[in-house]
Write a protein that binds this DNA or RNA. Structure first.
Lengths: 233, 233
DNA sequence: CTCCACAGCGCACTGAGTGCCATGACCCTC
DNA sequence: GAGGGTCATGGCACTCAGTGCGCTGTGGAG
């Protein structure tokens, strides 16, 4: 999409950086070490990566752009929560495309506080993209912004939960299944009028009947009554 | 709790830093400028603040410790979601104690990307404290960790939504009411059998009557039926 | 009075990130 | 084929955050 040609110098820098990071650690590796191993000038490093941390997350900028484009391409008839769940799945796929690389990076970010902080800012931008989309879709509804922020945070948290458990398994588990399960939980909590996932969708509509009186009551009261009715005390 | 005595030097550094940050901006102010204005040695700055960013968030370390202690002090009979909502309210109160300072800091963090990233790592630590508490409480339940992470993220997002809208109002709005409302929404979504807050608890129980048949149905189906019943298409 | 602990200070150093300019390859035009 | 323009790269010098180390003054305990 954005860049059709692949600069070999960029890839060489990434390879050299990860080799040194894994050998002696992130903080023990200077930018001078990286450029020396890659055989390029120090100034060129900062041409391709605004900071030393960026070399650890080389493809997030593109992935974020893709996700934003995906959300912008949706129509008004899409179910919003479903849409952002699909958007979150795109991020997971990006990780799953290079399992070995993703696991290596996970080990790095787990150890180095500076990288963890940087990853947070990356995740935050994804979450903001989801929230902004929902804000647009919820515009006009009561508490639209609040609902958008909360649901986006829940979806991001569910995605990250599944992603991290997959990374901890060294890429052995089924990432797609894990994220489907996690997102299904969020969709059940913020459920909208759509089945959360295919295997549950073939239930009969008659398997539940709900009658609510006093429609003006606050939602939490309704939920409270339902839960006591369902016997979850 | 942690530090009973207040070093005047620390406060002098904070005051000097904010004066300069507001005058000429964060990035245009060097640590040398701050220590020169405060009349202390440069090395002393880094004795009190590990980094230049830390001087912008001088009380978060204490607040995080207080929140962790609050969560650890809870008993097994507390309602978990209610508990972390109360914990989140502690953070809001910390902000509300110094409205002018909080609003100044908000303006700074909104403009400076580096400070925004730092704030993210602070918020992340709060969220992790909430999630770790819930993980302990949900231990053994199916999807306990997932539920803990998602609910903690939702509570943090709701809190941040209310906090930011209060900060945007220059501290004029009612912060407590805003956060109560926002957390009430989360509790309604992940609702457990308890009223979300005192001012709503004195409603009559008769103001809503719910009848649910087929109790074995999945929760998302129940929610779907309720929403269509309530007319939230 | 002496010793010791500690808070602050000064200094020199590393390393990230930036601005500026030179160089060389490539391409387009005449 | 010569000249000029663009662009990627390299080299250099600089700022500034953050650190390690050693010095100094002060104040309390013996």
């Amino acid at each position: 999409m954005s860049s059709t040609v692949k600069p070999p110098m960029r890839d060489a820098l990434i390879a050299a950086a990860f080799q040194l990071f894994l050998e002696r650690g992130y903080e023990q590796t200077t930018v001078d070490d990286i450029v020396a191993l890659a055989g390029v000038g120090r100034r060129s490093f900062f041409r391709y990566f605004p900071s030393k941390e960026d070399v650890v997350f080389p493809d997030h900028e593109r992935c974020l752009a893709d996700m934003t484009a995906f959300l912008a391409a949706g129509g008004e008839d899409d179910e919003p929560v479903q849409r952002i769940c699909d958007a979150a799945r795109m991020v997971l796929r990006m990780y799953a495309e290079n399992p070995a690389f993703s696991v290596q990076r996970y080990r790095l970010t787990k150890k180095v506080p500076g990288l963890r902080a940087y990853e947070l800012s990356v995740v935050w931008r994804y979450e903001r993209a989801l929230a902004e989309y929902l804000r647009g879709r919820f515009a006009g509804r009561p508490d639209g912004n609040l609902r958008a922020d909360v649901i986006a945070a829940a979806v991001a948290a569910a995605h990250n939960n599944a992603l991290r458990s997959w990374l901890r398994s060294d890429g052995q588990d089924d990432a797609e299944a894990a994220v489907d399960h996690a997102l299904g939980y969020v969709q059940s909590a913020f459920g909208t009028s759509r089945a959360p996932s295919a295997p549950l969708a073939d239930k009969q509509p008659e398997d539940v009947v709900v009658v609510v009186s006093r429609r003006g009551a606050p939602l939490w009261r309704v939920v409270q009554e339902i839960e006591s009715t369902l016997g979850r005390g």
